[in-house]
Design a protein around this nucleic acid. Sequence first.
DNA 1: TGCTGTGGTTACGGAAAGGGTACCGCCATG
DNA 2: CATGGCGGTACCCTTTCCGTAACCACAGCA
Lengths: 134, 134
Amino acid sequence: MNRATGAVKGKRVVMVCGVPMDMANCPVRDVMDNIGGKWNSLMILSLADGPLRFSELRRLIPDISQRMLTQTLRDLQRDGYLSRTVYPTQPPSVEYALTELGRSFLVPLKLFVDWSLQNHDAIRKARAEYDAVA
Amino acid sequence: MNRATGAVKGKRVVMVCGVPMDMANCPVRDVMDNIGGKWNSLMILSLADGPLRFSELRRLIPDISQRMLTQTLRDLQRDGYLSRTVYPTQPPSVEYALTELGRSFLVPLKLFVDWSLQNHDAIRKARAEYDAVA
DNA sequence: TGCTGTGGTTACGGAAAGGGTACCGCCATG
DNA sequence: CATGGCGGTACCCTTTCCGTAACCACAGCA
C-alpha cells in the first residue's frame, strides 16, 4: 500500500489505513462534528431506553440549560438521529425518540463509552506523568 | 431500572443505560474532548500502520498547519495515545508511534469510522429534508 | 390574581478552539 | 553565499461553543 497523498479530480485525498479520506468532504469529521458537542452523545444515550419528553430530559440531565437542550435536540433531529412528535394535548407535549439511524449509532457509541470507562485511569495517569516532567 | 437523577456524596450523577454517569468528572466526555478535536482522530489513524516522523505526517496530511500538527501531537502524547522519540541524528529526527493505549483505541475508532462511512448519505439526506421544511 | 408547568426563542458575552504568519537554530546542498 | 529541510515556538486574530438571563403563549390551580 502506498501511504502517500493522492490527487483525485483535484480533491485533496489522504490515504489512511488503506481507505481514501476526502479531506474537503470527510464523512468521519462530519459525524464527529455532530456528536462531538458537549451534550449530543449523552442525549442519544439518554434516549436509548425509550422516548422521553422535553421536560423529562431536562430533569434527567439537570446540568443542561434549556437553551442547550433545545439546540442539541434540534441538531440531532436535523441529522436524523431522533424524531420529534408533538401531541396536541393541553398543554402540548413533545416526545423525542431515537430513529433507526440513532439506534444503529448506539453500537459504536457504546463501544466508545466502554473504552472510555476502561481506559480513563490510564489516560489520567499518562497526563499526570507528562505534566510532572514538563 | 430507575432512570432518575441520583445524588451520591453531593456529586451530580445521571443514570443512563443503567450506568451512573458522574457529570462533574465524566470519563466519556474527557476522552471525547481529547479525540474530538479537528485532527486528533485522523492523526491516530495515520499512525495505525506504523511510526511516522514529523515531516512525514505533514506531507501525509497536507491540510494541517505546522502549528496544529505540533499541538495535536503534544495533546495525544500527553494523554498517552502516542510516544515521541528523538533520534540524535543530524538534523535530529523525531518519530511518533502509537502506544499500547493508542492501538487499543483503534478498535472503537475504526468502528466509528465504518459507521460514519456507511451512514453519511443517510445523514446528509435527513439534513437536506430538515432544511427543506424549515 | 398571581404562581407553576410545558416547550420553547432571543439577546448578550465570555471562553475556548482553530488557524495564519513570522521567526528560531542547525545543517546540507547547490 | 543563499536556499531549503527539520522540528518546532510566539503572537495575534477569527470563529465557534456554551451559558445566563429574559421573554413568550397558554392552561390549571390556589
